[in-house]
Design a protein around this nucleic acid. Sequence first.
DNA 1: TTGAAAGCGCTAACAG
DNA 2: CTGTTAGCGCTTTCAA
Lengths: 342, 342
Amino acid sequence: MRDPTLRDVAQLAGVSPRTVSNVVNGYAPVTERTRRKVEQALAQLDYRPNLLARNLARGRSGQIAVVVPYLDTPYFSELLQGIIPRARERGYNVLIDQTDGDAAHERELIRRAARAFPFDGMILSPLGLDQAALSDRDPDLPLVILGERSSDGTFDHVGIDDVSASRDATAHLIGLGRRRIAAIGDQPYATGEAAQLRTRGYRIAHADAGLDVDESLIVRRPRFNRIDGADAMRQLLARPDPPDAAFCYSDLVALGALRAALQAGLRVPEDIALIGYDDIEEGRYSNPTISTISPDKATIAATAVDRLLQRIAAPTPLPGIEVPAGHRLIARESTLGRTSGG
Amino acid sequence: MRDPTLRDVAQLAGVSPRTVSNVVNGYAPVTERTRRKVEQALAQLDYRPNLLARNLARGRSGQIAVVVPYLDTPYFSELLQGIIPRARERGYNVLIDQTDGDAAHERELIRRAARAFPFDGMILSPLGLDQAALSDRDPDLPLVILGERSSDGTFDHVGIDDVSASRDATAHLIGLGRRRIAAIGDQPYATGEAAQLRTRGYRIAHADAGLDVDESLIVRRPRFNRIDGADAMRQLLARPDPPDAAFCYSDLVALGALRAALQAGLRVPEDIALIGYDDIEEGRYSNPTISTISPDKATIAATAVDRLLQRIAAPTPLPGIEVPAGHRLIARESTLGRTSGG
DNA sequence: TTGAAAGCGCTAACAG
DNA sequence: CTGTTAGCGCTTTCAA
């Protein structure tokens, strides 16, 4: 049978649809008596508003889009874990899309060109789009960017301070007495901002300690995944003068590097110490466990949602701001050794 | 400015909205000349249909819900990775929700009680709901169940044959000469069907080989995650007669167990061989790599979407069917040792 | 405080 | 082949 409509309820309660709407939405004041009648009818019919109709009338969709490059990257799925409930709490549904880092796909999304993807705002973790490309978008789309681009003043950006986090990671290695420290994951091109910030932190840490950087130890990699980490490590280990430590630009890279190092017969951290970035759960269970930079994911997720909903609600476009999130260094076995492991 | 509507286009092209709609949707045949005029107007105005309106008129939402217990469980995120593009291709958006295995939440969803969650059908991986509870739902909700419940005739179920997969895994261990094989993850209660099927396969493999099962080696665990695996392994290793192998009910459990075994100073697989279930990428990079049962995730994802869309499109409810998916055993270092590692 | 009625933008009977 | 028109179910302006 057809679902009961507002009109059905109105009829049963003997009032107009307008009044029922008022009761349902708690809008205008309604007489206690009327409200009671309406509520009874509502219950009796088990009425549920048709959201499509409501949204059409209200001119909004009640949905936000969350767009990440890869859904199966633990960092993103852990972030989503925080974003979804927060959005649901605040009355929004979450549409998810993944781009595989495809620039065209990302561009289409921020231009709202996708015919079949209705949303009131978007949380995007761009990968294919560089800073400039981000500005070429639907100006009316409330947008929050995650990761390492910076705000151009028309959208919010939430993320941790990559430079200082990377400096911390590198300094940790230096503090442990390591001197030939590789950096795995640099991306010296327009879309590689995230990587470049990390490289910058790596350099600063060296400078802080009065150490020179061996440029040949900075390894470029297109993605922050396991394969890239493993490949890079193999390449480094093939050198006559391999590194005694590596700052990996993601935990996945570190995990891949770890695998390659162990396969090559090295001991971690005795022969080579490893530190990652992201603090994914996997790094807490690997053998050895992975030292890492832990971004405050809960805060990032919550803040991203809150900012986005604010932007959506704002009658006139809000200025875009930078929202910093915290991070901390977590030292585990891959740098400290088993003694203090847990 | 306001987005152009169908009416605007019609006006510009000098035809009726009906004709524009026909052109946009490719419905009725349209004169070449008319079509050209309309298409030109369409392009000129950069017209994009309002989906809310379209869906309201069509009486559907154009969205499917995908509901999993945990988004950050690799198995699910890898599955989602397959589901989303497939659904998008077929013109559907994907709404995601996670339940944390909460029965009440799952029940609410299949009853379509959630006021603010519009979808035409649902792909659900139930955790909190047992077989019986699954039948108590909105009878009009096109539903595809993933995992280990079986179809009650009103929804489709897609999944691999857990019993035979588990038998394969156990037989692999037996074939390697192991005789004290633990099973980690049994759940002897209503919602633990998945686990029970695996235990059954474990028993069958023993029977096949003419071996007795040591009941005390079957370890119960509420969840299939890393912590449970680690805890279970610690408990097993504390025994005077520890096992020489373990069939873990998920890769995550195996990874946790691996961690605990190595921490206890054991060698894997020399002292204890481990096999998991799910074939998540993490198991291909752990040290040692994890032998596992690999379900055909691509097929599961694609089939689930296809079946669901069929159910949605069907004018009259389709009978629910069982859709089997394939699996294969992948032997890696955690059972074979490093010699053949890759 | 409540009713009547006009949309929101699109689809789809029903003519013609 | 194309125009007219009545909804889809809800919100909301305007009156009363």
